[in-house]
Amino acid sequence: MTAIAAIRQRDLFAVVMLFGIYSLLTAGLFMNLDAVDVAFTEAAVGAGTTTVLMLSTLRLTGRYQRRSSHSPLLPLLVVTVTGAALVYGTLDAPLLGDPGAPAHQHVAPRYIESGLKEVGTPNLVTAVLASYRGYDTLGETLVIFTAGLAVLLLLGVTPCVSQRPQAEPLDDQAVLKLVVKVLIPLVLLYGLYVQFHGDYGAGGGFQAGVIFATGFVLYGLVFGDGNVQRVLPPHGLRRLAACGVLLYGGVGLVSLFRGGAFLDYDQLATDPIAGQHLGIFLVELGVGLNVFAVVMLIFFAFSSRRGEP
């Protein structure tokens, strides 16, 4: 329903809000399906960061959509065919939660049975993402890095002309400021918790980076980004993102040069489990740094263009 409402709306501000709700609902749905980590990501990225970014875009483009001159027929046809194909495809698919489904029978049992023994992290999702399929995660980290690069290439980040604190954009909102001031330390602390506790509970570097960035974005929204940019200069963020990726890749290279395979964490310490722990810790840290820096960069890229026509 939210999605349909979002399509019908021409007021883009409302669309953004509806998207936020949509993401939160999706997160709830994932939660229902016991995919806690996915729900977490959806909530942090979809409902949190994306909304802020879309709002910053709206400040640049204006609030209302122009009437499109395209005929909606062809897209409608494509969407209908795609939807029909999706439904057609699921007709023969195993039922949801069916323990006999191939997805639960082939590869997954080993992850569940020996994940704890081989990798040593109670959170199996972390074990699969960071170790068994750690190379995919390296790829995803680079996708995010590429996104940051793309924004740099397209918009560029011009540092605030005056580096001193700007006039605050929301001078009269005393209550809002107070609430934000109280919230920020909590958000940052929670970000750190998610970063370093990902082995045991839900979460990991990706979510932590987003949450941590949200704290700074919140501050930037209320108190102006001049202050934030003094703490986190854009050229420093660019390097931080690169460092995050290189940390991840570096772990892989170290294990390669120690005679193991690429990203074989067993090589990092004498005891394989300790090696896995160290490897996952470093890798998650790399992901966290990279995601944090890229989200901040994208935010600055949009917010620093506000002054221009």
């Binding site: 082939h106 590869v107 170790s131 068994y132 399929r133 750690g134 190379y135 193991g260 690429f262 067993d266």
Partner: peptide, 10 residues
């Protein structure tokens, strides 16, 4: 990769 035998690893 990661010395996890396929199909578990990549």
């Amino acid at each position: 990769l990661g010395d996890w035998a396929p199909p578990w690893g990549i």
